[in-house]
C-alpha cells in the first residue's frame, strides 16, 4: 500500500552557532540535528519522537525553512526546496503547513480569530470580502468552533479551542502536508483526544500527510503509521508503530517504552522498569561515536569509536546500533 513519496529528507543537518564573540574565535555550536534522513509517503503519518533537546522540533522547523539548514536536502514532490528563492518558497508554503505546540503563544494576541485564520487568504490572495468571510466561517466550523467567534480575541478561548484555531489557520491554504510540532503536549488529557481525533478525521477527509512531532510515545503510537525515534539529533530507530512497540531493537527505544507509565495498577506493579541513568548529554559537545553510549546499558568499546549507521534489519525496520 505504498503511496508515492511526498517529502524526502536526506542527511539534514542543523547546527546553531553559539554567541560569536568579537575576540573569541572558537566556534561552539549546538548540534541540534545531525544528519537525519527519512521519507514521507502521501497520506501517512510519520511520528518523530524523542526527549526534549533531541532536535525533533528543530528538524520540523528546518524542513519548512523556518531555520536555514546547515546542510542536507529536503525534497518536496521530487524537488529540493532548500534551493528555492523566496517566491518559489511562497508557493511551497501553500502545500506545507505547520501546527505549533503552545496554544497560547501561537496565536497573535492582538488579532481577532477571524483575522488569524484569514491571514493566509490575504497573503496568497485566495479570497476577499464576502468570500473571505465565508471561508473563515467554513474553517471555524471544520474545527468545531462557532463562526460567531470570529470577532473574538484568542485569549478568550481555552487551550483546546486555541489549538483548533491553529489547525483552522493551517488548513486555510489547503495544504497537502502538515508538520505537527507537539500539537497536544500543552493540552489536558481529555482535550488531547479531541485534537488527535480531529487530526485523524481531517487526514481521512482531506488526504493529508502528517509529520507528527511529539515526546509522548503512547500518543505517537496511536496516531502514527510509522515512527522515527530521535536521540540527540539523530534517528536511532525507524519502523512502523506496531513493530516499534512489539519488537524495539535500539536500547534507547526499549528504555523509552519502559519509562512510559500505563494507567493500570496491576500492570504497573508487575512491570520491571528499565530506568536509564543520567541525563541526555549536551548537544553542544556530544559524545564521540554513538551519542547514546553514555547512558546505554549495552555500550561497548566500538560505540565510542564509530557512529552507527541507520541499517535496515529486515522489513523496513531501521536501527542505528552497533550491538545488534
Amino acid at each position: 500500500m505504498k503511496n508515492e513519496v511526498i517529502l524526502e529528507v536526506e542527511n539534514l543537518v542543523k547546527h546553531f552557532p553559539l554567541e560569536e564573540g568579537i575576540f573569541s574565535r572558537h566556534h561552539k555550536k549546538v548540534h541540534a540535528v545531525n544528519g537525519i534522513s527519512f521519507q514521507l509517503h502521501q497520506g501517512e503519518t510519520l511520528g518523530l519522537v524523542g526527549e526534549s533537546g533531541c532536535g525533533k522540533s528543530t528538524a520540523g522547523r528546518t524542513i519548512i525553512r523556518l531555520y536555514e539548514p546547515t546542510s542536507g536536502i529536503v525534497k518536496y514532490q521530487g524537488k529540493n526546496i532548500l534551493s528555492y528563492n523566496a517566491k518559489e518558497m511562497l508557493a511551497v508554503r501553500r502545500d506545507i503547513q505547520m501546527i505549533f505546540q503552545d496554544p497560547y503563544a501561537s496565536l497573535n494576541p492582538r488579532m481577532t480569530v477571524g483575522d488569524i485564520i484569514g491571514e493566509a487568504l490575504d497573503i496568497h490572495h485566495l479570497a476577499r470580502g464576502q468570500k473571505r468571510t465565508d471561508r473563515i466561517y467554513e474553517l471555524l466550523e471544520t474545527v468545531g468552533l462557532n463562526p460567531e467567534h470570529a470577532n473574538r480575541f484568542p485569549h478568550e478561548f481555552s487551550g483546546g479551542q486555541r489549538q483548533r484555531i491553529g489547525i483552522a489557520r493551517s488548513l486555510s491554504v489547503n495544504p497537502k502536508l502538515i508538520i505537527c510540532d507537539e500539537p497536544i503536549s500543552a493540552l489536558d488529557v481529555s482535550i488531547q483526544a479531541q485534537i488527535v481525533n480531529m487530526l485523524e478525521e481531517l487526514q481521512e477527509k482531506l488526504g493529508l500527510t502528517y509529520l507528527f512531532i511529539a515526546h509522548d510515545l503512547s500518543m505517537v503510537k496511536h496516531i502514527s503509521h510509522r515512527i522515527a525515534v530521535m536521540y540527540l539529533g539523530r534517528i536511532v530507530e525507524l519502523t512502523d508503530s506496531f513493530t516499534l512497540y512489539e519488537k524495539p531493537l535500539h536500547p534507547y527505544t526499549q528504555a523509552l517504552l519502559s519509562a512510559i507509565p500505563i494507567p493500570d495498577p496491576d500492570i504497573e506493579a508487575a512491570r520491571q522498569r528499565q530506568v536509564l541513568k543520567g541525563n541526555v548529554p549536551s548537544p553542544i559537545d556530544p559524545p564521540s561515536g554513538c551519542y547514546f553510549r553514555t547512558r546505554c546499558p549495552k555500550a561497548q568499546e566500538v560505540c565510542a569509536l564509530s557512529t552507527p549507521e541507520l541499517i535496515e534489519q529486515g522489513n523496513n525496520h531501521w536501527v542505528a546500533c552497533h550491538c545488534i
Partner: peptide
C-alpha cells in the same frame, strides 16, 4: 521567536507584514 510569528512565516508572510501586523502591535 514566538510561535505566532513562526506561524505567520510558514504562511508566507513577508518582513513588512510580520513587522506591521505581528511584532509592532504586540510591542505597543
Amino acid at each position: 521567536e514566538q510561535e505566532f510569528v513562526l506561524a505567520a512565516r510558514t504562511l508566507g508572510a513577508d518582513t513588512k507584514r510580520i513587522l506591521i501586523k505581528h511584532l509592532l502591535p504586540n510591542s505597543i
